[in-house]
Amino acid sequence: MTQYIIYFNQQWVGHHSDDWFANRGPLAAAVVDEMKNAGVYVFAGGLHDIDTAFHADATSGTVKITDGPYAPAEAYLGGLTVVDVPDLEEAKRWAGKLAEACGWPQEVRRVE
């Protein structure tokens, strides 16, 4: 089996009403439950706003912890799911289920 990360950037979510999000939450939770029942679930979670991020940098030879993202970016990670599946096609299938449930795109990359 191989692990894949399925993730989205917060900017892909778009602007929606609270009701829209309330209706999507149970759909996404159902896909995660389906992953658990299928035995492919490793981890899933949404991330807090980028304003709560901090970073650790040891490139100077001394570790420095600083509030905020490491570098400003137009896009930042909004959430992720890790699955352990037999092949890329199965990872794509789960990504499609998440994309449909969430209502925004998902990207898939193999974890090594």
Rank of each mutant, 00 (worst) to 15 (best):
A71H: 04
V32D: 01
T62P: 05
G45S: 10
G103C: 10
D57G: 12
W20P: 01
D51F: 15
S17A: 04
V31K: 05
V40F: 02
E112W: 00
S60A: 07
L27H: 11
E74I: 09
T81H: 11
V40D: 03
V82I: 06
G46I: 08
D19E: 10
F54P: 10
Q11G: 14
D19Y: 05
Y41A: 02
G96D: 12
A71K: 03
D51H: 15
A99Q: 14
A53S: 15
I65K: 09
D33M: 00
A56K: 12
D18E: 05
V111A: 03
Y41F: 02
A58C: 13
Q10I: 13
P69Q: 15
W94G: 01
Q106I: 05
D49S: 07
A99S: 12
L47E: 10
D57H: 08
V32M: 00
G78K: 05
A101N: 07
Q106G: 03
A28V: 08
Q3T: 07
W94Y: 01
F8N: 04
T62C: 08
V42S: 01
D87V: 06
D49T: 09
A73R: 10
F8L: 04
A95E: 03
I6F: 08
T62Y: 09
P72M: 14
R24W: 09
C102E: 11
A99I: 09
H16F: 07
E89Q: 15
W12D: 10
K36R: 07
M1W: 11
G25P: 15
L88S: 15
F21R: 04
A56C: 13
A91C: 11
T2H: 14
P26M: 00
G39C: 00
A58Q: 14
I65A: 12
D84V: 06
P26T: 02
H48W: 10
V13A: 09
M1Q: 09
Q3M: 06
A30W: 04
V42P: 09
V82N: 02
A58P: 07
W12F: 09
I5Q: 08
A29S: 01
V63G: 10
E90H: 14
V111W: 01
A38P: 01
P26E: 01
N37I: 00
K92P: 15
A73D: 05
